Amino acid sequence: MSTSAAHLAGTVTLVTGASSGIGEATARSLAAQGATLALVARREERLESVAADIRASGGSALVFPSDITGDGEAVSLVERVLAETGRLDVLVNAAGIMLVGPALDAPAGEWQRNVDLNVSALLNLTHAALPHLVAAARDDEGRGVADLVNISSVAGRQAIGGAAVYSATKFAVTAFSEALRQELAARHVRVSSVEPGAVATELTDHIRDGVREHNQAWYASLETLRPEDVADAITYVVTRPRHVAVNELLVRPTDQV
C-alpha cells in the first residue's frame, strides 16, 4: 500500500499496546511517516527500547507507561501526552487481549479481562481523546483532519464458537467505531475500524492451558499475517488525503477462510 499521497509531519500520534505486536509495528511505521509517537503500554523497558529504535532512525517518540484499564488512567494519560506534546492528531487503540476457550467452565475473570481491555479501556481513552482530536482537525495550521483507528478483528464480523466473549468485545468495537464515525464525519475526524485475521503476535501466549495448544496449532496451519502487515494497513488509513476516509478495513491471511 502506497503512503505517498500524504504524510504525518508535525502530528502527534498516541498508540496503545506499543510494546509489542501490532501496536509496536504501527508506532514504527507512523514514526517513519514523520509523526511524533506517544508510546503507551505497561512494559516501560520495552517501550524505551522501541522509542530508542525510532529515535535512532531519525524519528521522534515519547514513552508513557500506563495500565489503561486503571480507574481514571485514560484522562491522566491524555493529559500527560498533551502536556508533553501540545496536541493529539491520531489515536490508535491497538491494545487488546484474546482470552478464548469454551464458555462452560471458563474462569469468569477471563471474560472480565477481555471486556476491561478490549472495550472499557478503549472507550475511556477514546472519550478522553475526542476533544483533542476535534481540535486538531480544525487547526488551520495542521492537516485539517484527525484520525481514530480502533483495532477490531475478524471475530468482530463473525461470531466464533469458543470465543464468545472475545467476539462480543470485537463486535462492540466495530459497532462503536461505525456509530462514532457517523457523529464525527462532519468534523473531519475520521474513525476507522481495522479488522485483522490471524496475526503472529503474543496474543495466543495468554490463553489458558488446554486451550492455548489448539489455538496455536490452528495459527501454525496458516501463513499468518505479520504485525507489519497490519501496521501497513493502518498507515494507509491515516495517511489518506483529507477528503478520503477509509472507514473499515478487513485484512486476512490469504489462506484463512
Rank of each mutant, 00 (worst) to 15 (best):
P253F: 05
K170T: 08
G161N: 06
S193Y: 08
T69K: 14
L37M: 08
V78N: 01
D71E: 15
G96F: 12
D209A: 13
G96Y: 13
T204D: 05
V237E: 06
N247F: 02
P107G: 05
G197S: 03
P227V: 11
A5S: 11
E48T: 04
V78F: 00
R87G: 00
N114Q: 13
P253H: 11
D232C: 04
G162Y: 07
A168T: 12
V100W: 09
A27K: 08
A220F: 07
R187H: 06
T16M: 14
N150M: 10
G70N: 15
G101C: 07
I151F: 05
L203N: 04
A9M: 09
A31R: 07
L88H: 01
L30H: 03
A6G: 06
W111C: 06
M1A: 06
T174Y: 10
N124R: 15
L250N: 08
Y219T: 12
V230S: 02
G142E: 08
E195H: 11
R43A: 03
L225F: 02
L125Q: 07
D67M: 10
V145L: 07
T174V: 12
P241Q: 15
E110F: 03
L250M: 12
D232Q: 13
R240G: 00
G142K: 09
S192C: 00
D53N: 08
L82V: 09
P227T: 15
D71M: 14
Q112G: 02
V154K: 14
D209T: 15
L222I: 11
S20K: 15
P253R: 15
V211G: 03
G21F: 05
Q158Y: 12
L203R: 14
S49Y: 05
L133R: 08
F64Y: 02
A56K: 14
G86T: 10
V81R: 14
E141Q: 12
D140L: 11
V119I: 14
D105N: 15
F64M: 08
E24K: 09
I68P: 01
I160R: 09
D89G: 00
K170D: 03
A52G: 00
L99T: 05
E24C: 06
L88W: 04
S120Y: 10
A103H: 11
V238M: 08
K170F: 03
R42H: 03
V90Q: 04
V191Y: 01
A74W: 02
E45H: 04
N93C: 09
A38T: 02
I68V: 12
V194S: 01
V199K: 09
G109H: 10
E248Y: 05
G96L: 13
R242H: 06
V115S: 04
L148N: 02
Y219P: 00
V194R: 13
P65L: 13
Q216N: 03
R28Q: 14
I234F: 04
